[in-house]
Design a protein around this nucleic acid. Structure first.
Length: 667
DNA sequence: AGCACGCCGACT
DNA sequence: GTCGGCGTGCTC
């Protein structure tokens, strides 16, 4: 008999009733293989039902009073669930009223038998498949450029004995490109993260870098490959197939430091002696997880930092309102370039010259002349909006979006012919007088005509035209007389930077509704500006007002602070947390009742949704998070268990959905 | 989810 | 008397 014959097991099941540790006896025959972290098969109830699960840990005595069943099978000896990742899943699930196994489904990739067998075969007694870095490799990694941070800040971030508060940084990255070597150009902020991470690995600790999309990831991978050996890099994204993903995951699992790079799920990867966790552009919606329970990569990074006491850096050209909040409560300290070093984005009028080739494409004269001139020396970027329908109601006099008189939410029509209603609280025809001109006449907004690449290209005779959008994104463009037409977020990189950048659809982007319009526009435009050569003009076409002013004077950070102050006044995220509760009217009513009794909690709605259900948005102070999650979780379990109404439960809870307050309540 | 347990109507 | 209906509850 061994000392710890009881296995505590997490069943791989989305059922909230099963989201706890069940105890099983470990038979003598499996004693050696049944180590913490392995995948298991266990019986669940009688009748030969078998469930998959993870062995979380082993204990000497069972706390369960009843008869224990035995583990059926140890799937493999690979210990894929580390204690750190389990704790992360548990805490994140509790915070979001979800299940740990839902989180682990994202954190632990599906098993690939061939790859796992090869890896297990190569694993030595120390839990590694290869050597640590050589002194020469360490020297290269220690010399990796980290242009946006001074050596003191880097030293503190690397120092495990430094005060935790000093090791949490919000970096507003300088808006310029740097050359990593071998003709690889990337934003200075991304290079900084790679440089920081390379030093961390050189010092014997792992680092995680999570970026929004694959284009950023390719830049990071290329830069990392110049400063670290391939063996020290674990790429954990799903973009190159399940096999490569699992290979990267297993590399991260080894007992030697790695630079773990990937998209949002990288923050949940295993890491040997985690020393740094870095997020790039945390305001990008791609960092918001789509799968249940929908925990944002930023929140996972914060939890991970708290657990591992590692360095934490949230870096972006344009800080998110969430980062701003963390700065204001004193949780993050800022590293910001001097205002004089911020890139100026010049607003220009929308007045179009009549006799220029730019007129047909409705490019204002000043912008067209700047672009034509710049084209002689290299590529020019024209950033455009994605096409899309926008069913908002605006002031007929000045065009400002109309707000709800009840909650200040956007007012729109759900479908053609319907009465205008508030997208957030559901009030019918609630429009308040225009906030800009006090007018009361209304009209539907028009989406604005979409320019074609052809039109834009013809405005610049003799130039090569390259189109880059989400479907056909170009990573890089060669120097030359080239017009690059790109939708926001899909702008290619040019070595040395664009010679001019025109932000053409600024008016349409700013007129979109949604809670984060200002944050998004600042992010899109400052990210594009960061791709320009140092002295190249960046022109914001056809927009004035506070956003344009902030960009012109290099005070975007102050504008985000003002934006956050507004949200605080209105009780909107990220000043408060939110929980979207969807289901049948009685289910939602029952779920809301106990949480609305708590201080610092209120709700918008419920409103009817298109599929006959109702939706309410609970708003809660951060301090109420534990209580509200606990109550809503109890409501989900109750709804799943009590099947009084013969139908399976439809109650859903989603915390901190970034789109909750946007115009997505229809459909 | 499944599957067993449990307390009320029509069958040999 | 008892076979079986599905509402209710549990899964180590």
């Amino acid at each position: 008999m061994t000392a710890e014959p009881i296995a505590r097991v997490l069943i791989d099941s989305p059922l909230p009733q099963l989201d706890r540790l069940l105890e099983y006896r470990i038979p003598e025959s499996l004693d050696g293989d049944a180590r913490p972290g392995v995948r298991l098969v266990v019986p669940l109830r009688t009748g030969g039902r078998q469930a998959k699960g993870y062995l979380v840990d082993r204990v000497a005595e069972a706390s369960f009073g009843g008869q224990l069943a035995e583990i059926s099978e140890v799937v493999s000896t690979a210990r894929v669930l580390t204690p750190e990742v389990y704790r992360l899943a548990r805490r994140a699930a509790d915070r979001a009223a979800g299940t740990a196994s839902d989180l682990l489904r994202l954190a632990v990739p599906p098993r690939q038998v061939r790859i796992e067998k090869a890896w297990l075969g190569a694993l030595d007694a120390a839990g590694r498949t290869g050597p640590a870095l050589t002194p020469a490799e360490i020297a290269v990694a220690e010399g990796a450029p980290a242009p946006a941070l001074d050596s003191d800040t880097i030293a503190v971030l690397r120092d495990p004995t430094a005060a935790a508060g000093d090791r949490r940084i919000a970096l507003t990255a300088p808006q310029r490109l740097v050359e990593a070597g071998h003709g690889e150009w990337l934003p200075a902020g991304l290079m900084t993260l790679v440089g920081l991470a390379a030093r961390t690995v050189a010092g014997g600790r792992s680092a995680i870098i999570a970026v929004p999309d694959y284009r950023d990831l390719d830049l990071v991978a290329a830069a990392a490959a110049l400063v670290l050996p391939g063996e020290a890099i674990a790429r954990v994204d799903a973009g190159r197939g399940a096999g490569e993903r699992y290979r990267g995951f297993l590399r991260a699992l080894e007992k030697r430091p790695a630079l773990v790079i990937g998209t949002r799920t990288a923050v949940t990867a295993p890491a040997h002696r985690l020393g740094l966790i870095a997020l790039w552009d945390d305001g990008d919606p791609l960092h918001a997880e789509q799968h249940a329970p929908g925990v944002h990569a930023r929140d996972l990074a914060l939890l991970r930092h708290d657990d591992a006491a590692c360095g934490l850096i949230l870096a972006a050209h344009s800080p998110s309102a969430d980062t701003q909040r963390l700065v204001e409560i004193g949780y993050l300290r800022t590293v910001t370039p001097a205002r004089s070093a911020r890139r100026r984005i010049r607003p220009t009028t929308r007045a179009v010259g009549a006799d220029e080739p730019g007129a047909r494409a409705r490019i204002p004269s000043i912008a067209w002349r700047a672009a034509s001139e710049a084209l002689a020396t290299g590529p020019v970027l024209l950033q455009v909006a994605r096409p899309g329908f926008d069913p908002r109601i605006v002031c007929a006099d000045c065009g400002e979006a109309v707000r709800c008189r009840v909650c200040a939410g956007p007012v729109g029509v759900r479908r053609a012919g319907a009465a205008p209603s508030c997208r957030w609280c559901g009030a019918i025809a609630p429009a308040a007088p225009c906030t800009r001109c006090a007018g009361t006449r209304r009209r539907a907004s028009t989406p604005g005509s979409v320019r074609t690449a052809d039109e834009l290209g013809r405005a610049f005779p003799g130039a090569r035209v390259i189109v880059s959008d989400a479907d056909h994104a170009h990573q890089q463009v060669e120097p030359g007389r080239t017009i690059v037409v790109a939708t926001r977020g899909a702008e290619p990189i040019v070595a040395g930077g664009y010679r001019a950048v025109l932000l053409l659809d600024a008016e349409r982007m700013l007129a979109r509704d949604g809670l984060r319009v200002v944050d998004d526009c600042l992010r899109w435009w400052q990210n594009a500006a960061a791709l320009a050569a140092d002295d190249a003009p960046v022109l914001l076409v056809g927009v004035d007002g506070p956003v344009a002013q902030a960009l012109a004077t290099g005070t975007a950070d102050e504008l985000i602070a003002a934006e956050l102050a507004d949200r605080r006044r209105l009780r909107f995220p990220p000043a408060v947390r939110s929980a979207t509760v969807t289901g049948t009217a009685p289910e939602v009513r029952a779920a809301l009742e106990p949480v609305l009794a708590l201080d610092g909690v209120d709700a918008l709605g419920p409103v009817d949704t298109a599929d006959g259900q109702v939706r309410a948005i609970v708003r809660l102070d951060y301090a109420r998070g534990v209580d509200v999650a606990h109550e809503l979780r109890a409501a989900v379990v109750a709804a799943a268990t009590a099947r009084a109404q013969r139908r399976r439960s439809t109650l859903r809870v989603r915390f901190d959905d970034p789109t909750a307050f946007d115009a997505a309540l229809d459909e």
